[in-house]
């Protein structure tokens, strides 16, 4: 099949970008979308033109590196990662727009490559369980109800690709943050830090410049791992608990009320 790609080209984070048009002929419907970019890059290189920079690594839908916006939709027309999108989802003669994730906290490094280290900093703000290596109790010491384990797992499948941010009209990373809150907050091991975690992560989310969540739900429409929307409700509930009750029903875990009030302005935004 023959297609036309209109691709965002931007030399570096400071440069101004623009769309460039490339005809890509003789491609197979079995190619993945990234393989079309590979083929185009081979041809560009031989013509002496700078190949298009794009991120990818595992190319089997689990590392979260490869997201781009295709025809205005994060990861394109199938609800999967860009590397798992194949050309049989398109038709001969199609004109396809390819852009990087668009969000201030994800600055473009070059062409389709963005810097998503803001996600790392959100994790640093509490997206973990403090368990120093070497002191762990026996794995069977605390049973976990299967239902909780399964729902924690559903949330843990998040690959931090950032499609939720790219899709959200507010540029919010709430689905990403909520997936982690849900994964760790449903497990007994995650309880001691449950409330300090949600306060810390949401505060960092806002510091990074991600927008607020207004329950639009675009994020779940593009999430390749189908992280459920209810994770955001869970995050909100934990956040409200932490801020209003000081998490008093979790005596050991709760951040103290006076600790929280200082941060309140940052978090709620009033």
């Amino acid at each position: 099949m023959d297609i036309t790609l209109r691709v965002w080209r931007q030399a570096n984070s400071r440069a101004k970008g623009k769309m460039a048009v490339y005809k890509v002929n003789d491609i197979s419907e079995h190619m993945s979308f990234l393989e079309v970019l590979d083929v185009l890059n081979e041809r560009l290189t031989l013509q002496g033109e700078d190949p298009i920079a794009f991120d990818s690594d595992c190319r089997e839908g689990i590392c979260g590196m490869c997201g781009v916006v295709i025809n205005g939709v994060a990861h394109g027309p199938q609800q999967t990662t860009t590397c798992q999108l194949h050309m049989r989802s398109f038709s001969d003669g199609d004109v396809i727009d390819v852009e990087p994730w668009r969000a201030d906290p994800f600055p473009v490094i070059k062409d389709l490559v963005v810097d998503r280290s803001a996600f790392d900093r959100i994790i640093q703000a509490g997206g973990y369980i403090s368990a120093p290596t070497g002191t762990a109790p026996d794995a069977h010491a605390t049973p976990v109800p299967k239902r909780d384990a399964d729902r924690a797992f559903d949330a843990a499948t998040c690959i931090s690709c950032g499609a939720c941010v790219a899709a959200c009209p507010n540029g919010s990373a709430m689905l990403f943050t909520a997936a982690k809150i849900t994964h760790l907050g449903l497990l007994p091991q995650g309880q001691p830090e449950r409330y300090s975690r949600v306060v810390g992560m949401v505060a960092q989310h806002d510091v990074e410049g991600f927008g607020g969540c207004t329950n639009i739900g675009e994020c779940t429409a593009v999430c390749p791992k189908e992280i459920p929307f209810e994770t955001i409700s869970r995050l909100n509930r934990d956040l409200i608990s932490a801020l209003t009750h000081g998490g008093s029903h979790w005596p050991k875990a709760a951040p103290r009320r006076d600790e929280l009030e200082e941060e309140e302005d940052d978090i709620i935004g009033f």
Partner: peptide, 16 residues
Amino acid sequence: DQCVAQGVPFAREYGG
């Protein structure tokens, strides 16, 4: 033990 303590969600049986 270490992985479970970190919160890795291994498969569980109904008894937890």
